[in-house]
Design a protein around this nucleic acid. Sequence first.
DNA 1: AAAAGTGCTTTGTTTTTCAAAGTTAAATAA
DNA 2: TTATTTAACTTTGAAAAACAAAGCACTTTT
Lengths: 98, 98
Amino acid sequence: MVNPIEALNKIFDSRIRLGVMSILIVNDSVSFNELKQMLELTDGNLASHLNTLEQADYLKVQKAFIGKKTNTTYFITDLGRQAFKAHLDALEKMIKGV
Amino acid sequence: MVNPIEALNKIFDSRIRLGVMSILIVNDSVSFNELKQMLELTDGNLASHLNTLEQADYLKVQKAFIGKKTNTTYFITDLGRQAFKAHLDALEKMIKGV
DNA sequence: AAAAGTGCTTTGTTTTTCAAAGTTAAATAA
DNA sequence: TTATTTAACTTTGAAAAACAAAGCACTTTT
């Protein structure tokens, strides 16, 4: 038998990063503040998890002004979408005992 | 919107513990050594993760002799099955954006 | 001018993860 | 009978990760 956990992505061990990806995969663009409110996190904690996902090229950032307010918006990348799906597939296979 | 990650079980953040549960949910009884081989872990690492799951009453242990050899076998508990399913449900809901 | 909001970074503590080595007890080989 | 091996841990310690809280730069609102 092949080790069932080796196909799981370590980056997605984190509940918070899973949450971010889940939000971004259906919403296609979400601001820092929206994420913060949805996930109920402190700024620093969110920023560091976003940074981990960014380092992995799973999401990209766009800084802009909306009206006069600064706004940081996050998008999932193709690689991120791919990695997330692969992780979910691996999870499903593992659970189903394939 | 309700925080999508709060229904996730922290115990299942760990890939290894997820793996153990996935194995036990379909196999109903697996020995320490089988788990060790399937998941490719060191003794200590496996023991500590099993301990975490035991503390949570997600699995129970049975020590016995099989022939003349000592054997430690792990079983999932009802609570464990329940918690695991609840976690998977929460994951699914989160991913589907419900 | 003061207060508040955005989006971080920094700092430092706590928690978690893990490998490696040590341990106990039984089994088997020499 | 002594030595080795196997099973299943426990202990130790190091490294990594998670997190809250505070600080900061900048802007906007009051």
